[in-house]
Simulated assay, not measured.
Amino acid sequence: MRALILLWVLVFLGTEAFSQVNIPLWHTLGEGGLLEWEAQAFNEGQRRYRIQPRFVGDYRELGVLLTAALRNGTAPPAAQVELGFLPVLVREGLAQPLPEPSNPDLDPELLRLGEVGGRLYGYPLGISLAVLFYNQEALRARRLQPPQNFSQLLEVAERLSSRSAKGLLFSADVYSFALWVLARGGSLSFQGRPAFSGSEAVSALELLQILERQGSLQVRSAQELFAAGADFLRTKAFLALGPSTLLPAVQSRTELPFKVGISPIPLEPKGKVAASGSVLVVFRHAPEEVRKGIEGFYQHLAESNRQLALAQGAYYLPLSLKAQRSWSREEVGRLLLGQKTKLVPWHQDSPLALWAPALEEALEKALKARMPARQALEEAQRKALAVERR
């Protein structure tokens, strides 16, 4: 009898192990970090699916590795990617559409940021938004307030500047310029195609050139992101525009030498706030069981207590409405949630990441070599259209 019971147990366990769906998941959220902790909690809470997270570096490194893996057939069935990579995957036919989560607590407006062309392709884990970071001590010493529009930004940046420091730091990368253009009410794309040489984009770059000529702008290239951060920490610049998640990420790695303030990004009347963030995607080659497993994992991640912890720790806007209500009682939560109605995806429903090299080259020519803004952007437009035709 005991032998029969043992045999039954072995058969049962063997069936469980055989039927479990293993789901490799590439991500950028740190080795031993949040996503890996939650994957372990999810795996321990049920037996049907096993998420197997693998940290592969930052967003750019992930993009390079995924591109190669998708070409040679070694890609995972699912990944966590940056929001701007989503239109690229959809355009190339690599991501499969996802069903709407059956969770009434999820914010429908934030969930919509995972859409491309009106269809949901990414489950947002958290949404970051463009903000203005500032050196509180430097502004206080000059009796200045954070600028609320671009006219004030020009004035504040000039008053903060000296021979040894600039008022505003600008990274000449596609995301930074996109948030600058959106904040002025413009766009870098039209109907999914590049629109770099439009009047609004040109005027945005011309404004940056004004800041550079008046000695108020510290420019770093897209390849100098770490140097840009060092400029701010070493008081070589006092204002910087970037995603809300940047500050807690830096604070977790180093002790800041001064108090960093956060305020809403300067906006023109028609301006929008650039949304970036982290989304889960399922690739076209993944079977249905993998998609169902990712749905289950997302339901786990979207629970209000987990979303609140993510918001407090990383300054992501939480997808959970209950978490939003709790976070709005905190100062930083009120500030960031107050921008929610102005959010648009920084990629503007287009594959901006594909056109990044042409645009970033143009920004450097305009801001470092002083090429006229229109000429630089028209050149970038021609190169981006050439990429489109391939």
Rank of each mutant, 00 (worst) to 15 (best):
P269G: 06
P101I: 02
G32L: 12
E61L: 11
V290D: 09
G215I: 10
E224P: 03
V90Y: 00
E331I: 02
A141I: 06
G185N: 03
S244T: 04
Q148V: 12
D349M: 00
D105L: 06
E295F: 05
L359R: 04
D231W: 09
T15R: 13
F226Y: 11
G45M: 08
V11E: 01
T15S: 13
P266Y: 00
T235F: 09
S263P: 09
A275Y: 08
S216C: 15
V90C: 00
S221W: 02
V281Q: 01
G242T: 04
A373W: 09
F42N: 08
L144V: 12
Q251E: 15
E82C: 00
F196H: 06
Y316L: 07
L241A: 05
P257I: 12
F12D: 08
G261W: 02
A358V: 05
R163V: 08
G198E: 13
R306G: 08
V202N: 02
P318Q: 07
K340A: 12
G93E: 06
L168M: 04
A373R: 02
L13P: 01
A17M: 08
R220H: 13
V131G: 01
E16V: 15
R48K: 11
E360Q: 13
S276I: 13
A309E: 15
Q223A: 11
R54I: 11
R60C: 06
S176D: 05
R213N: 15
Q381D: 06
Q191Y: 06
L132H: 00
S252L: 04
K365F: 04
A358I: 07
D231S: 09
P124T: 12
P266V: 02
A183T: 02
K365N: 09
R71T: 07
Q299D: 11
Y298F: 12
A228F: 10
R50D: 10
S197E: 15
S278C: 03
T15A: 13
A195M: 01
P345V: 00
G261K: 05
P266A: 04
G57M: 14
N43P: 05
A138K: 13
